[in-house]
Design a protein around this nucleic acid. Structure first.
Length: 200
DNA sequence: CCCTGATTCGC
DNA sequence: GCGAATCAGG
């Protein structure tokens, strides 16, 4: 496949949006991330311009300066209903988070019709933390469209109709479609039916 | 190991 | 110009 003007435009746009080369590659289709990177360079738009007037970033990627929270910790914090620090949560993420705050029945009717069944928390009286308070998913890990691999969390965040809709994108065991945290939410039993048998 | 982008170089 | 292979890093 060749680089038609349309494809180049999409590439440019997505690259500007901060998607990774592999993500862009999968959205474009029929190209590898190498091809994307190669094109990006040829187009001369490497070195993504971050925040305006930001310090010129060196050629090689440098680790983020912010004290980013580890996924595990985030999950833990959420579990405790702690209002996780919005360290480097940007406006977009913030909005998404708020949107999802109490809206658990997110439904994706996209290409793969991913559907999340809303849990009836009204059944349980004392329980509450069921709502998925999406916490700051590091922008660096967010997945836009269906650019998820076998090992990225496919938990939808935000309103699919919104521009800022995205998928969790954190890494997962490849066995489950969700990261550890979202797994607990996704498979939360409506009723605490423990039919375990002590066989030993 | 998974992933990222950067470079090289034969095509 | 293109992109696989390779490199360098997180």
């Amino acid at each position: 496949m060749s680089w038609t003007t349309e494809r180049v435009e999409l590439l440019t746009k997505l690259w500007a949006e901060g998607l990774s080369a592999s993500q862009i590659a999968s959205e474009l289709g029929n190209v590898t991330r190498n091809a994307v990177i190669g094109k990006v360079h040829r187009l001369g738009l490497s070195g993504r311009t971050k925040t305006s007037g930001a310090a010129a970033k060196p050629r090689r990627a440098t680790s983020a300066p912010a004290a980013e929270t580890a996924p595990a910790k985030v999950a833990a914090a959420v579990a405790d209903s702690a209002p996780v620090a919005e360290t480097q949560m940007n406006a977009t993420a913030k909005t998404a988070a708020q949107t999802t705050q109490r809206t658990t029945q997110t439904v994706v009717s996209g290409a793969n019709a991913l559907k999340i069944t809303p849990e009836e928390d009204d059944i349980v009286g004392d329980l509450t933390p069921v709502a998925a308070p999406e916490v700051a998913v590091p922008v660096s890990q967010r997945a836009s469209i269906l650019t998820l691999t076998e090992r990225t969390c496919k938990w939808p965040i935000g309103d699919p109709n919104d521009e800022d809709f995205y998928f969790c994108g954190r890494s997962c065991d490849a066995a489950s479609p969700y990261c550890e945290y979202h797994r607990t939410i996704a498979y939360q039993p409506v009723n605490d039916r423990r039919k375990e048998r002590k066989t030993a």
